[in-house]
């Protein structure tokens, strides 16, 4: 068993924390985990990408080889689109949050943000499966956009054959979050899980 997973988004979306939590859950399950984090100037609006590699046998390197991602979590649609050519293949499963975060050069009117339905269709044509989720609005309803990463983790853990479950994630959250924050995060995971299962069924 080996899984190459990419979580991609923009600084401030909780990418690094989500991959750490997932990684901790995987280690507790006895898996070999390697997470390569690229953040650089991320806090200043740049892209952030985590490469998460799970295996039963041995620790992989920190960068996923070209076109070798099994699953891509797009916290932001443009960032999911950006990595398509380099890392995806016809068998990749995408879970993408539909809410754009506009780059400054788009806000300034210098370049165009691609049409959101077009992004959806390109990814859909290029992947084995695309789960297109309105996860930011669910996060805002729940308590704030910061809940997005947990919703997306919940969705990820409900994929068929994914080795980590929402229950595993909750086990990790219990040890790293304050008591008062737990219920909200559990609910975010459940929301993600139900978004996927409602599509599956």
């Amino acid at each position: 068993m080996s899984v190459n997973l990419i979580i991609t988004g923009v600084g401030g979306q909780g990418n690094v924390l989500a991959s750490q939590i997932l990684g901790k859950a995987a280690v507790r399950k006895g898996l070999k985990v390697t997470i390569g984090e690229t953040f650089g100037l991320s806090q200043r609006g740049g892209p952030v990408m985590s490469h998460i590699r799970l295996s039963k046998e041995s620790n992989a390197g920190p960068i996923i080889p070209p076109n070798a991602a099994h699953i891509v979590i797009g916290l932001e649609p443009l960032e999911a689109l950006r990595i398509l050519e380099e890392y995806a293949n016809a068998g990749t499963v995408f879970i993408v949050n539909s809410r754009p975060i506009y780059p400054l050069n788009v806000i300034a009117g210098e370049v165009q943000y691609p049409d959101i339905e077009w992004i959806r269709s390109v990814i859909s044509q290029s992947a084995k499966r695309l789960f297109w989720l309105e996860a930011t609005s669910m996060a805002v309803d729940l308590g704030g956009p910061i809940m997005l990463n947990m919703i997306m983790l919940g969705a990820l853990c409900s994929l068929d054959d994914f080795p980590i479950t929402c229950r595993d994630i909750k086990g990790v959250l219990k040890d790293i979050f304050e008591e008062s924050k737990l219920e909200l995060n559990y609910r975010a995971l459940d929301i993600g899980e139900s978004m996927i299962s409602s599509i599956y069924n």
Binding site: L41, P47, P103, N105, W118
Partner: peptide, 19 residues
């Protein structure tokens, strides 16, 4: 696969400017 994606996307992915 790469050619297919490249033809689909062309130059439609704007860079994300630091700010």
């Amino acid at each position: 696969y790469r050619d297919k994606i490249s033809a689909l996307i062309k130059n439609s992915v704007p860079p994300r400017e630091f700010g």
